[in-house]
């Protein structure tokens, strides 16, 4: 008896078998490749953070201290599970944007200068924008040392320029807060006019507004911690820039020597 290939029974069996085979194949493949794909995403996060520090060639795992800001305090993150949780949060832009506690932060010290990288998330014209900003204290003022930004779908050649090295480079050395203590870094239409402002992108005004909002909201969440930072650095400077880690006795001897001379 010849099989009727257009009978309903044949078609239903055909589709069921097909779906089971395809489903099994794809599920196996996805499970098998998941670790490699996750490693790629993790590596990209680490590379972006190192770029924000301006140390693209350095190895993240060797030089960066990971931490979380809880109630204005820097709490180092060392447990493997916590590290994983931090990176998972960085990968989830919605949760990161809503987080108000245990905020991820990265610390990197070189030549006695500590830099901190904070993740930033916001909305551009067409979709999400995100990145990392690196801050440090210069002359008692919080200053941007570097920034890395990326976007989901800004207009190529216009808003999408926020992902270019040229635009990101113009954020370097901008001072975060003005004399009145207000957040003052912004992409200014018509060109930068003071030490806080950056040239906006012609034709990319809406994206630039998004960047301004992103910087202000994301960085403001860290305000209580950042305030302690400027105070601490100011104290360090008044204490004749003594490295904090040196034993107290030795420091005393040195200061006595200085007086004698």
């Amino acid at each position: 008896m010849a099989i009727n290939k257009n009978s309903n029974v044949y078609i239903i069996i055909y589709t069921v078998v097909m779906v089971v085979i395809v489903g099994t194949l794809l599920a196996t493949l996805a499970t098998w490749l998941k670790p490699t794909q996750d490693a790629n995403v993790l590596n990209e996060q680490k590379v972006s953070i190192m770029k924000a520090f301006g140390e693209a060639d350095a190895n993240f795992d060797e030089v960066v201290t990971m931490g979380r800001i809880t109630a204005g305090e820097f709490v180092a993150v060392e447990e493997a599970a916590d590290v994983q949780a931090v990176f998972a949060l960085l990968g989830n832009r919605k949760a990161l944007g809503e987080a108000t506690d245990e905020l991820p932060i990265f610390k990197f010290e070189k030549d006695g200068v500590a830099k901190y990288v904070l993740p930033i998330v916001g909305k551009g014209l067409w979709g999400d924008i995100w990145g990392y900003v690196s801050l440090y204290v210069v002359d008692g003022k919080l200053t941007i040392s570097g920034i890395v930004m990326d976007h989901a779908g800004e207009t190529p050649g216009l808003g999408a320029e926020i992902a270019s090295a040229g635009v990101q480079g113009s954020f370097a050395d901008k001072v975060l807060y003005n004399e009145a203590g207000e957040f003052a870094v912004r992409m200014q239409k018509g060109g930068a006019q003071n030490e806080h402002q950056v040239d906006a992108i012609t034709g990319g005004t809406k994206t630039c507004d998004g960047v301004n909002a992103m910087l202000e909201t994301s960085i403001s969440k860290y305000k209580s911690f950042l305030d302690t930072l400027t105070v601490a650095v100011a104290e360090d400077t008044t204490a004749e820039e003594q490295p904090a880690e040196e034993p107290v006795e030795e420091a005393n001897v040195e200061s006595v020597n200085v007086e004698e001379e």
Partner: peptide, 17 residues
């Protein structure tokens, strides 16, 4: 062995996979 009535669907499933 392909049922011609669901020909296009089968093609799509194969290509999508």
């Amino acid at each position: 062995g392909l049922p011609s009535r669901i020909r296009i669907i089968v093609q799509l499933v194969v290509i999508a996979t």
